[in-house]
Design a protein around this nucleic acid. Structure first.
Lengths: 149, 149
DNA sequence: TATTGTTATACTCTATAACTATA
DNA sequence: TATAGTTATAGAGTATAACAATA
């Protein structure tokens, strides 16, 4: 009979994802400051490009955040000129959000910043491991229902 | 001349680590509730087992959180009987924190919960990819100075 | 005077609840 | 009456600043 070794939680994937994720997100937040964006704004823009959104409520569902948060994020993005809100003529309660040219530029700029951070983070990894990490995280994201482009 | 493809930030390692990490940490927080612990408490216990701490200030440095937060976390863990605070006789300003038997039990229980979540999260991965993920995250943790047991 | 720990306060993020407009 | 969006409020988490004890 094999006694299971008591492993410290700090060595689990769960724990390390949490710590590394928070660490990397903090650094991303700093770099995004120049664009007047925070990661959640980027997430909203990203979802818009991937699949659009027939309503803000739908967007809240996809992003798994409260509808009231989508309002705040969209307010800011609209003020930046990154998105446009268009009332659905068929149902005037709904606001359709669309990416503007400037929004696409912002999203690409945010993408460049994220890639820079990727480079820095994965610098100590062998090329094969970098590729593996990218592939595995994509797999996990897809499996947990996180939007993927 | 190769034009670099504009990649969406949502497909970067940086962004996915942030989203997956927050998602998994939220689930871990739920499961830990029964132990009256939050992830930061587990982190403190974990660091204590790995390397001990000559002072709370040192612990704050290792954990990369404010000293005032260590006080709160330690207050709670002491109330649970998981740690003991012992004044350093040589320098009575310092509080040395030590894990108790109960603290070790709690840490192990928290480890079991994290392993359960690991199983669930990595279920869709091939065994080789699970191993790769564990190995790569450990590598990244070590490289960014995150404590490792 | 400098350092450790603690307490008081404030800020950020985000959710819940209440409200408005439209259906 | 039900739904989309919005606004108001509240809570969690954590940092910064002020303070106390010891060196």
């Amino acid at each position: 009979m094999v006694e299971k070794e008591a492993r410290s939680p700090v060595n689990t994937v769960t724990f390390r994802l949490g710590v590394l994720g928070a660490w990397q997100e903090a650094r991303y937040t700093e770099r995004l400051a120049g664009l007047e964006l925070k990661p959640k704004h980027v997430a909203l823009l990203g979802v818009l490009r991937i699949k659009g959104a027939e309503s803000q409520l739908e967007l809240a569902g996809v992003m798994r955040v409260a509808p009231s948060l989508v309002v705040q994020l969209a307010d800011h993005l609209e003020a930046l000129g990154a998105i446009e809100r268009v009332r659905d003529p068929a149902d005037r309660r709904r606001q359709r959000l669309t990416l503007t040219k400037d929004g696409i530029r912002l999203l690409n700029a945010a993408g460049d910043l994220a890639e820079e951070l990727d480079e820095e983070l994965t610098a100590p990894l062998a090329p094969a491991d970098r590729a593996a990490l990218t592939r595995i995280l994509e797999r996990l994201a897809a499996h947990t229902g996180i939007p993927t482009e």
